[in-house]
Amino acid sequence: MDLSSINPLLLIATMIAASMPIFFAAIGELVAEKSGVLNLGVEGMMIIGAVCGFVAAVETGSPIAGVFAAMLAGAALSLLFGLLTQLLHANQVATGLALTLFGLGLSALIGQSYAGIKPPSFPQIGFGTLSELPVIGALLFGYDALVYASAVLVVAVWWFLGRSRGGLALRAVGENQDAAHALGYRVVAIRMGAIVFGGACAGVGGAYLSLLRVPQWTEGATAGAGWIALALVVFSSWKPFRVVLGAFLFGGVTLLQLNLQAVGAEINPVYLSMAPYLVTIVALAAISGTGRGAHLGAPGSLGKPFHASG
């Protein structure tokens, strides 16, 4: 075993790239769940984003257009979820599952003639001489635009949820829908906004997968990333910055164990593969053990249907 042949800077950079799809999906779902909506259709919205982003990027030749198309596609699918659950009062769990099935099937249909096509490559942001600085250059200035966008996004979500009036209203709706309604907040409208935001983020996560991480379209390309994103929201106990940490952990451990194998470390890969899930269990146990958050920080009205007459 020769650990020195692993380049730590390169490893960290690839771990960040590996965490991006689940980060985007999870931060969107976090906002939706904060408003009290449990959308289990993340996997479906991601894969629709992946295929629509891919198709748009190939057709227009612009990966940026692909990202926007993915955003729209994810948002459109989530809008369907919103209509069904918020206006027609369908069960959220069942609708979310159906959304995943629908997304997987529809993406296979849309992507049928796009197998084996190479998407246009994503532009790197040029920082000039900054990226040539030792260590810091590779660590801070060597990523694609979406990585920097994700940093902005997490700060924005943190600020919005914790520091803005709109975020306060959104959290109020999520914690106690009846009280929020009594105060005059428009529960359904706020939730629709949160759902669509979640869908757009999941779409971007999907596009990251099909345009950057594995630049190709294959059916079922997300392979369960949406479910990991859902677990990540719980792991983070609905706190934006913990999503970053969790995504890095969940996405990074896979890469770490592949790297250790490639240099011949004698660690059974199954132990490392289960590490993020073990950490989730430990984290949840630790959080609930402190007594501070007996409900682990889950929004009070999460998953509950709302009707104004209620």
Binding site: N7, L10, R213, G220, A223, L255, L258, V263
Partner: peptide, 19 residues
Amino acid sequence: FTWFDPAKEADAASTLIEQ
């Protein structure tokens, strides 16, 4: 430890290439 997971397969390939 999977038959089909494009992202993981791609990561494995990149890791090997780095080595």
